[in-house]
Amino acid sequence: MTVTKTTTPTEAPVEPAPTPKGRRRKRRKIVVPLVLTAAITGVAVLGVTRPWERPASVTGKPPVEHGTVAVQRGSLSSGIQIAGTLGYDEPMSVVAAGRGTVTALPAVGTVIKPGGKLYEADGSAVILMRGGRPLWRDLGPGAGNGPDVEQLKRNLVDLGHADGLGLAVDERFTKGTETAVKRWQKSLGVKQTGTVALGSVVMLPQASVRVQQLGVQLGAPLGTGSVMTVSGTGLVALVRPADNQLSRFKPDGKVEVRLSDGSMVTGRVRSLIRGGSGGQGEGDGGGGAGGDQQKTTVTITLDSQQQARRTGPSSVTITVVGDSVSGALIVPVTALLALDGGGYGVKIVDGRGTRLVKVRLGLIADAQAEISGGVEPGTQVVVPK
């Protein structure tokens, strides 16, 4: 038997096709200038990197086109304007503490002062008094001490029914308190019992109230809900800014309110209440549904009620006064380039070509920026189209 031995030869490397000398020299002439150009470009941009300046082969997208705008001289202000409403202050519901039938109601818009009749139940007047604590029991001889007694005594003194009695405004129902109550009852033309019956008085915190809306009709039984909604007599401006605008509203911060007749009145920020009505008064249309309920309501007191009363509840425009500059050099914020090591620059286009100039940044407002250093009015700067 004949054995044939086969040997596999080692593969020799394939030599590249020879390149003509002239072609090699030409390639070197191309490559070297490109490397130099890249190095020069790297120095010229001072480390500035913009996605739109990358080649299409790197980003996979065509580069962003650019244009130029002229540096302008003008004014900038960081103030903002927001639509709001004008309404009566601190609306609240009046809930009857007693029982009976409604026999008289005031007209909407009626202003009632402490000591005046708020409404009528079973033919008897229900009187308004000032206080933040609702009455919850009869107050008369033998009533235990408490802040509700003190609240009643303060009203009796303020209404003049304790004159000459030397009545101390404290939490004790004394003989002098009983006498003052009888004087008050005599002024109303009712039986002088010396006891304030539950339901005969409504305590509200405002000095005077304005009837904003009625909650019942004549003949309705008490105890079924709100008798009426009342508010303060003063007008306030209300606005619901977006979350990113809230920082502009400082406590006691100054604002300007343009009324519906075009006149302007100044005001101050009184309160910011998250997710509530914020004391929305009549004429406020900001009580939307859903997420709008979670917005912060800003209440603004006005420096002139006389001006506000000429228009009444209506739409207004709130201007938050901010920083301002005049005679400034202004460019769009899109012209600014962040530099390595901090700071900003702009690309200038002039007879010498395009060059980067470092600038100092000032006020920014409404997508415009104040700059200074190395630029003049009319200078053309590069911006993305």
Rank of each mutant, 00 (worst) to 15 (best):
A207I: 06
P55F: 09
G341C: 08
V269N: 05
L198R: 14
V102Y: 10
R28S: 07
G262A: 03
P91M: 08
R268H: 13
P205C: 04
I371N: 07
R210W: 03
G123M: 05
V333N: 07
P62Y: 13
E376P: 00
V236M: 13
P221N: 14
D366V: 00
N155A: 02
Q151N: 06
G115C: 05
V209D: 06
T299G: 12
R28N: 11
H161R: 06
R183I: 00
V45E: 11
T2H: 09
V64H: 11
L259I: 02
R310M: 08
P134V: 01
L46S: 14
G146Y: 05
G166N: 14
L246W: 05
L246D: 01
F249T: 00
K26S: 12
G341M: 09
V381E: 03
I348H: 02
A125Y: 04
R137E: 10
P332N: 05
P147D: 13
S277Q: 13
A38V: 15
P221E: 15
V69A: 04
L156D: 07
T4H: 11
Q368M: 10
G87V: 01
K191D: 15
V94T: 07
G373R: 10
D138P: 13
G286L: 10
G281H: 05
I330C: 05
R27F: 09
Q307D: 14
A207H: 13
V383N: 10
Q280Y: 10
R99G: 08
A207V: 11
M203L: 12
G100Q: 11
T317Y: 01
Q81I: 01
G234L: 12
G132N: 14
G84C: 02
V325A: 06
Y119E: 01
G343A: 06
A39K: 09
R73W: 00
T379K: 08
V95C: 00
T179P: 02
G345K: 10
G327P: 06
G131P: 04
D261F: 08
R248F: 10
G234A: 14
Q151T: 06
P241W: 08
P241I: 01
V359C: 09
A39I: 15
A143M: 04
L214C: 01
G327T: 02
D284I: 00
L152Y: 06
L118I: 01
